[in-house]
Simulated scan of single mutants.
Amino acid sequence: MTDQTAGTPIVVSVRGEANVEADPELCEFAVTVTARDKDRRTALEQLTRRNKDLLDQLKAEYGEALEKLETGRFSVYPEWRTKRDKPGPYQGSVRIRIVVKDFTILGEMVTRIADAEGRTIDGPFWSLRRDSPVYRTARTEAVTEAIRRAREYTAALGSHLTTLLELADTGLSTGATPAPHTRMMYTMSGAAPGAMPDEGPPALDLEPTRQTVYAAVEARFSATQPAEL
């Protein structure tokens, strides 16, 4: 090593990555309420009633367990077979987004809200909250990994880190092992005369899917020149 390079710092560039697994914090379902009748007004009234029944049921029975309850797309339209035909029966639908934070009621809630005519459920979709501490944990572990790698490289050279020059966040993502989504459609029917009161369908056993948060950073450090190479 020459005298000119002895005091010149070297630059060490590394990448730090982390994968952190955690239990989900939220569970989302989408319920589509439908109605169909040859008369447009009747179809609309039927849809309005079914939509109100669902919202009232969710708020009354599971209000404290919900993170969000939102109404999405709404439509009422005639069914056409061909352009020359007269309009057929009218079809109406409204989509309700349900986000649950209390998983203890999930199985019961899903089957109870599905046990009515004209309801279709899509889900479950598991997730973390946007401000979940799991994301911070992943970022911290990625930075720690970058520092560890840089120290190992400089130790192998016989030098040591002196200054952090740059730290860049190159990616943060959340993933989960794909799980089959449950799609359910139940039709309510009247009980036979003399039958025992309907206690409702049994609760559906739902197993949460663990979430994986991936974080990556790129870091550049200055380090002392090695004593010898």
Rank of each mutant, 00 (worst) to 15 (best):
M1K: 13
M1E: 09
T2A: 14
A18S: 04
N19G: 05
C27A: 10
F29K: 02
R36P: 04
R40M: 14
Q46W: 09
Q46L: 12
Q46R: 12
Q46E: 15
L47T: 04
L55R: 13
L55S: 06
Q57K: 13
E61D: 14
Y62A: 07
E67P: 08
E70G: 13
S75T: 06
V76K: 06
W80M: 12
K83Q: 09
Y90P: 00
S93C: 13
R97L: 01
I98W: 04
V99P: 01
V100P: 00
K101Q: 08
F103L: 07
L106H: 02
M109S: 04
V110A: 12
T111H: 09
I113F: 10
A116V: 12
A116R: 08
G118V: 00
G118P: 02
G118C: 01
T120C: 10
T120P: 02
S127Y: 01
L128K: 03
R130D: 15
A138R: 03
T140D: 07
A142D: 05
E145T: 15
A150L: 06
R151P: 01
L161G: 08
L165H: 06
E166G: 00
L167M: 00
G171Y: 01
A176L: 12
P178F: 05
H181S: 15
M188R: 05
G190H: 07
M196I: 10
D205H: 02
P208T: 08
T209P: 13
V213A: 07
Y214D: 06
R220P: 05
A223W: 00
